[in-house]
């Protein structure tokens, strides 16, 4: 599902960061470990199509991201990749439901309120449907971020330090939810983290 080959990137044109090749099948889960500055966020941005690499290939399904036009990449990202960030950001003027509806629209999915409700139900967040996102707690915001990553049924879910701002209890819950939902949608999951609490949970690990 995700295959990278000889991927490298450079911010200043001189110092290259080289990344190990990744090969993940559909539905597989992987942990990407590394200290800050090791380039793990860069790798995640490359995998998510948030920027283009200086060299090498990122293939998601049958698509080589480097071959897409920038508008094609926007569309591909919206439809196939769900990303969860360390600090969840939302469109502040919108409610939880409206944020998720917007994600459906941007990812060219059909408007489907009952789908959104059922995802929020699984994440134990259905009572916050019409809340403004800024009024949610950190743990709640992270759950809505997961809902957003799932709402378009992406083939790939990328999570960037999803637990670093959470306490042990919430960390446990959020990771369990991520795993469970990824399995349910049969999506490939990559979690980038330096959080050692997660280390033992995943069989497949790459250390940068």
């Amino acid at each position: 599902m995700i295959i990278t080959k000889n991927l490298y990137h450079s911010y200043d044109g001189k110092n290259n960061i080289e990344f190990p090749d990744i090969h993940l099948e559909k539905g597989e889960k992987m942990l990407l470990l590394g200290q800050s500055g090791s380039g793990k966020t860069t790798l995640l941005h490359l995998l998510g199509g948030l920027m283009k690499s200086k060299g090498g290939e990122v293939n998601i399904g049958q698509t080589n991201l480097a071959k897409l036009t920038s508008s094609g990449l926007d569309k591909f990202r919206g439809e196939n990749i769900g990303i969860i960030f360390q600090k969840p950001h939302f469109v502040q003027s919108l409610t939880v439901l409206e944020n998720l509806l917007l994600t459906q629209k941007l990812g060219s999915s059909k408007k489907n309120v009952s789908e959104i409700k059922s995802i929020l139900e699984k994440l134990n967040m259905s009572h916050k449907l019409n809340a403004k996102t800024k009024n949610l707690s950190q743990g709640e915001q992270q759950r809505v971020a997961i809902a957003r990553a799932l709402v378009n049924h992406p083939a790939v879910i990328l999570a960037d330090e999803p637990t670093s701002a959470l306490d042990d209890k919430n960390t446990e819950e959020v990771i369990a939810l991520l795993e469970q939902q990824a399995s349910e949608y049969n999506a490939t999951l990559i979690i980038v983290t330096h959080d050692t609490r997660l280390k033992e949970r995943f069989e497949k690990r790459i250390e940068l």
Partner: peptide, 12 residues
């Protein structure tokens, strides 16, 4: 939130 909308598939 603008960057986030881009991530979700919004074009420039």
């Amino acid at each position: 939130e603008l960057a986030l909308m881009r991530v979700s598939g919004a074009s420039p």
